[in-house]
Simulated scan of single mutants.
Amino acid sequence: MLTIHHLGLSRSDRIIWLAEELGLEYRLVKHDRDPETFRSPPSLWEVSPMGKAPVIEDDGLVIPESGAIVEYLLDKYGEGRLRPAAGTPEYIEYLHWLHAAESTLMTPVLMNMIAGMSGVDNPAYNSFVHGEFETVLGYMEGVLANREYIAGEFSAADIMVAFPLMMLDSPLIPGPAGGDVLGSYANIQAYLLRLRDRPMWLKAEAIFRPE
């Protein structure tokens, strides 16, 4: 059986959500962060060579990295669901957002979070973060003006993109960009509401965030 290793406040949220959208049976193993260092516990290092989550075990394979896991699960269990047909313009758009989630979008999100957690107050650093948000979020706002989901129909790209956006929308993630980064982006806010209304998101959230 597929095993999903989950670490609180991590990208492993994506994999539980994807598994629920696909209707997969799986075993969930939860790992708790160290309350002082916020690092992953020894139990996760026993599975993942870098102590990171998510990581899955399936048919003797150990697969880390949320993007790689998403592609693996869709290849093996997707049966054509949650991504457009390969070779189509829609597929190229899907690929763009599937990978932009962990590069173009996640970079300023992490920079903002690290600055907030470490107390960094550097004008040049903060200006760069603000500029990146204006570029990336401004572009997404325009894309979502005529779409319900980031690549057209709901897909695994939305599951990837949702995580950094939800980080920005969380009061638990401080940073120099402030607590209302998404406040001026009405289309992105509406998009997040649509994602949070999905039955399988609600089911997944109840699993990884039961409190």
Score class of each variant (00 low, 15 high):
Leu2Cys: 12
Thr3Pro: 06
Leu7Asn: 06
Leu9Thr: 13
Ser10Asp: 02
Arg11Trp: 02
Glu20Leu: 10
Glu20Thr: 12
Glu21Leu: 08
Tyr26Gly: 09
Leu28Tyr: 06
Glu36Asp: 13
Glu36Arg: 15
Phe38His: 15
Pro42Gly: 05
Pro42Phe: 09
Ser43Glu: 11
Trp45Met: 13
Val47Cys: 06
Pro49Ile: 07
Ala53Asn: 00
Val55Arg: 00
Ile56Gly: 00
Glu57Lys: 10
Asp58Lys: 04
Gly60Asn: 05
Ile63Thr: 02
Ser66His: 01
Ile69Leu: 00
Ile69Met: 01
Arg81Cys: 01
Leu82Arg: 02
Pro84Ile: 05
Ala85Glu: 13
Tyr91Cys: 05
Tyr94Glu: 03
Leu98Tyr: 08
Ala100Gln: 04
Leu105Phe: 09
Thr107Leu: 14
Asp121Ala: 15
Asn126Trp: 09
Gly131Ala: 07
Glu134Ser: 11
Val136Trp: 00
Gly142Glu: 09
Val143Arg: 14
Asn146Val: 14
Arg147Asp: 12
Ala151Met: 09
Ser155Trp: 10
Ala162His: 06
Phe163Trp: 11
Pro164Glu: 08
Pro164Gly: 12
Pro171Tyr: 13
Ile173Ser: 11
Gly178Pro: 07
Gly179Trp: 11
Val181Trp: 04
Asn187Pro: 10
Leu193Glu: 15
Arg196Met: 03
Arg196Ile: 00
Arg198Met: 00
Pro199Asn: 05
Glu205Asp: 08
Glu205Ser: 06
Ala206Tyr: 04
